[in-house]
Measured scan of single mutants.
Amino acid sequence: FIDQHRAALIARVTNVEWLLDALYGKVLTDEQYQAVRAEPTNPSKMRKLFSFTPAWNWTCKDLLLQALRESQSYLVEDLER
């Protein structure tokens, strides 16, 4: 899901800070967390977050999807259609 809908997630996720907090310490290191937060816009934050995903396994991507479902369920539901 995460890889399949990358472009839509970059464009449409609005609550990136919540995602970062949910992933911090589980998937994201402090350095990665700070790097994403330093980006000026939500799309650039999501691009930076996605720059780390090639090194993630399915469990990490599932944690991101779970966080998306909790914070932006309407968006996930729309993309699952």
Rank of each mutant, 00 (worst) to 15 (best):
residue 66 Q to L: 05
residue 4 Q to C: 08
residue 24 Y to E: 09
residue 42 N to I: 15
residue 28 L to F: 01
residue 18 W to I: 14
residue 9 L to V: 00
residue 54 P to G: 14
residue 27 V to L: 05
residue 42 N to H: 05
residue 8 A to D: 15
residue 23 L to G: 01
residue 38 A to C: 10
residue 77 E to Y: 07
residue 38 A to M: 13
residue 5 H to I: 13
residue 75 L to Y: 04
residue 80 E to Y: 06
residue 38 A to Y: 00
residue 46 M to P: 06
residue 68 L to W: 00
residue 49 L to C: 00
residue 25 G to W: 09
residue 37 R to Y: 12
residue 37 R to K: 13
residue 77 E to Q: 12
residue 35 A to R: 07
residue 1 F to Y: 00
residue 45 K to Y: 00
residue 17 E to R: 05
residue 64 L to F: 15
residue 74 Y to N: 15
residue 73 S to H: 12
residue 9 L to S: 01
residue 28 L to P: 01
residue 5 H to T: 05
residue 72 Q to S: 11
residue 6 R to M: 13
residue 26 K to H: 08
residue 23 L to K: 05
residue 53 T to I: 13
residue 20 L to Q: 01
residue 31 E to C: 02
residue 60 C to H: 15
residue 64 L to V: 12
residue 40 P to H: 12
residue 37 R to Q: 14
residue 74 Y to W: 14
residue 22 A to W: 12
residue 33 Y to S: 09
residue 28 L to Y: 03
residue 59 T to G: 14
residue 8 A to W: 03
residue 57 N to E: 10
residue 54 P to C: 11
residue 44 S to D: 15
residue 18 W to E: 15
residue 20 L to S: 06
residue 41 T to E: 03
residue 63 L to W: 06
residue 74 Y to D: 15
residue 61 K to S: 07
residue 60 C to R: 10
residue 59 T to C: 12
residue 31 E to T: 07
residue 52 F to K: 00
residue 38 A to R: 13
residue 64 L to H: 04
residue 50 F to Q: 01
residue 51 S to I: 01
residue 68 L to M: 08
residue 63 L to Q: 11
residue 76 V to D: 10
residue 49 L to R: 07
residue 77 E to W: 08
residue 70 E to T: 12
residue 73 S to T: 13
residue 25 G to C: 06
residue 31 E to K: 05
residue 17 E to W: 05
residue 15 N to H: 10
residue 50 F to S: 02
residue 25 G to T: 02
residue 38 A to L: 12
residue 47 R to I: 11
residue 13 V to I: 07
residue 58 W to K: 15
residue 26 K to E: 09
residue 17 E to G: 09
residue 33 Y to T: 12
residue 60 C to E: 15
residue 50 F to Y: 14
residue 46 M to K: 02
residue 20 L to C: 14
residue 60 C to I: 07
residue 70 E to W: 09
residue 50 F to C: 01
residue 7 A to I: 05
residue 59 T to H: 14
residue 3 D to L: 01
residue 15 N to K: 13
residue 43 P to A: 13
residue 15 N to C: 04
residue 67 A to S: 06
residue 35 A to E: 13
residue 46 M to E: 02
residue 21 D to M: 10
residue 61 K to P: 02
residue 32 Q to D: 02
residue 63 L to G: 01
residue 43 P to L: 10
residue 66 Q to K: 13
residue 50 F to V: 06
residue 22 A to Q: 14
residue 51 S to D: 12
residue 3 D to G: 02
residue 15 N to I: 01
residue 12 R to H: 11
residue 24 Y to T: 05
residue 27 V to D: 01
residue 6 R to A: 13
residue 5 H to M: 12
residue 63 L to E: 10
residue 41 T to P: 02
residue 48 K to R: 12
residue 70 E to N: 10
residue 47 R to Y: 01
residue 55 A to H: 14
residue 46 M to W: 04
residue 34 Q to G: 05
residue 74 Y to A: 15
residue 47 R to V: 12
residue 63 L to C: 08
residue 47 R to A: 14
residue 38 A to H: 11
residue 70 E to M: 07
residue 60 C to Q: 15
residue 25 G to Y: 06
residue 56 W to K: 04
residue 56 W to Q: 05
residue 39 E to A: 07
residue 57 N to L: 12
residue 51 S to E: 14
residue 16 V to R: 06
residue 75 L to W: 01
residue 79 L to V: 03
